[in-house]
């Protein structure tokens, strides 16, 4: 049972309760940030008069987790993608790779961390729902099982086709995310990247990395073979030109 959050932007009134709740739950200072920052892990943006909250999409096959060289980011069975700051060395590949450009960095600190929403994994572990969904006064953001939320979203699309763009953003994007969105306007208008593939991004590098054992095996045989074959010719050349001072090839 993998948890998820459904954000119905047609219901959001832009009150910012989710932002305040997130700050309180994470011990973050209040701020007037209008975009995600190292101190604002959940933010309400306004596009063409529509309010939309932005935070980590908690992808099913997260790009950030696959690119981290030390495995500091991890998708949990419960749903959240969490960050182990004790492993992180600050290479920032996760920031580069995230198709939604979510992870933020503590640039001002000498010992910086990557920062993003954790879907309140610690709260979930204790049986609570995330602070943001609990705080939402109009149920624009709701928390639950991913499959159930997908069914709920499909219901809303079916019952009110004129009120929505017929698409659940996050159902298939990058192989599916745990944060799902419904909208009355095209998702690009709300600032969502329009051209993310529907297959998980880690697949693009897996294709290359899986070839490595082959490259090593075939390469060793090929290079060893070339050395062996050309050595003969070089030896003959040496033997024939031995009166001159032709140095044997060795390192250096």
């Amino acid at each position: 049972m993998s948890t998820a959050i459904l954000v119905d932007t047609t219901r959001c009134i832009g009150c910012g309760a989710c932002v305040s709740a997130c700050k309180e739950a994470n011990g973050l200072p209040k701020s007037e940030d209008t975009t995600l920052t190292a101190e604002t892990l959940n933010v309400v943006e306004s596009h063409s008069g529509v309010f939309v909250r932005k935070f980590c999409m908690h992808c099913q096959d997260p790009t950030c987790a696959s690119v981290c060289p030390v495995g500091a980011l991890r998708k949990t069975a419960a749903g959240p993608v969490i960050y182990d700051e004790s492993r992180c060395m600050g290479c920032r590949y996760c920031m580069m790779a995230c198709p939604f450009s979510i992870p933020r960095y503590e640039w001002k600190l000498v010992l910086p961390r990557v920062r993003k929403c954790t879907m309140c994994a610690p709260r979930q572990a204790k049986g609570f729902q995330p602070a943001c969904t609990e705080a939402c006064p109009v149920q624009a953001s709701i928390f639950g099982d991913r499959d159930e939320l997908l069914r709920e979203a499909e219901n809303r699309l079916r019952q009110n086709p004129a009120g929505y763009v017929p698409h659940i953003y996050g159902r298939d994007e990058v192989g599916g995310t745990s944060v799902l969105y419904l909208s009355a306007v095209p998702f690009e208008v709300l600032g969502f990247p329009a051209n993310v593939p529907h297959n998980p991004l880690p697949m693009y590098t897996h294709r290359e990395l899986s070839k490595i054992p082959n490259v090593v095996a075939v390469g060793t045989a090929l290079l060893g073979g070339i050395w062996w074959i050309t050595r003969r010719r070089a030896e003959v050349a040496h033997a024939e030109g031995d009166e001159e001072e032709t140095p044997r090839a060795s390192v250096g």
Partner: peptide, 17 residues
Amino acid sequence: GRPYRIWHPMVMWNPRS
């Protein structure tokens, strides 16, 4: 960001990366 941890990939592995 934390160069003193540059040795981490030696013991913390993510072969998918």
